[in-house]
Design a protein around this nucleic acid. Structure first.
Lengths: 139, 139
DNA sequence: GTATCTGCAAAACATTTGCAATTCT
DNA sequence: AGAATTGCAAATGTTTTGCAGATAC
């Protein structure tokens, strides 16, 4: 990686998104975090670095990314939406005890069953809920 | 079916839920509707029949059903949660154009990939997003 | 110079909670 | 009577919007 900022700039522009400083930082945050963050988590973490940042900008940016299919809403338990980069080759597991959201690698993206015709699929999501290994062994 | 109300009464009690009139009506509504309704849809439709019904009761009842794993949150697009009876043998398809949520029958419930150990899975959800056959053919 | 994006504050919604009244056993 | 459930109204929390100022092209 030569210059992360410049690369993200190109990446976003290629997808029809004007690459402002805030947008680059938010995309970069999603790429580097493994927590499937909520708007609040993103705002709280980025605000110290970018004191002028507002929550509205985080909301607007994520909505733009959603529209352009760069990100997905992963989980909505607990009333706050949680986000992740769009990628059909992994699913998610939400632990009901500790609330962690874990990436589940998939060999291949799940597909619609044979015989269903006429559907155009833009996005695929596989989600499990239960107890993660740590919480499961604690009982 | 002999007596739907009486049957639902037994069904709910078997699952540790005291079967009030409101709860039976809400469960029955979910069973009979194919729209994957939101709280508002349930409330608007049931309110004429049960004038005293309050939104809070619909929320409370759905939360109780969620806790007892009788229902699932299917979709959260547009900020309102949409509900369906829990059943791992079907997935969902949300049409981005018309907003309809369509049941997708599955031969078998999706499973965690081999090699992941220690997870307890209580709930599985497979979700597609795109254009349904009708909307797809209109462009 | 025009269009777009940001940040603030206010508005709009969705959901939860506290409490009194009601219902069920 | 005692326990649980309902309905209302108020509170909470999240997300969206309108608009003025700042930025980018």
């Amino acid at each position: 990686m030569r210059n992360k900022i410049a690369d993200l700039d190109v990446f976003l522009r290629d997808r029809g998104i004007k690459a402002s400083f805030q947008r680059i930082k938010i995309y970069d945050y999603l790429q580097c975090s493994f927590t499937h963050p909520s708007v609040s988590m993103i705002y709280e973490d980025l605000h110290p670095q970018i004191p002028s940042l507002s929550r509205a900008t985080v909301y607007n940016t994520l909505n733009l990314f959603l529209e352009k299919k760069l990100v997905q809403v992963v989980n909505t338990e607990g009333s706050e939406a949680r986000f992740d980069l769009a990628d059909p080759h992994h699913g998610h597991f939400t632990c009901e005890s500790c609330g962690t959201i874990i990436d589940i690698p998939l060999d291949k993206a799940p597909a619609l069953p044979e015989g269903l015709t006429g559907f155009e699929v833009f996005e695929t999501q596989l989600h499990f809920r239960g107890k993660c290994p740590q919480c499961s062994s604690k009982n």
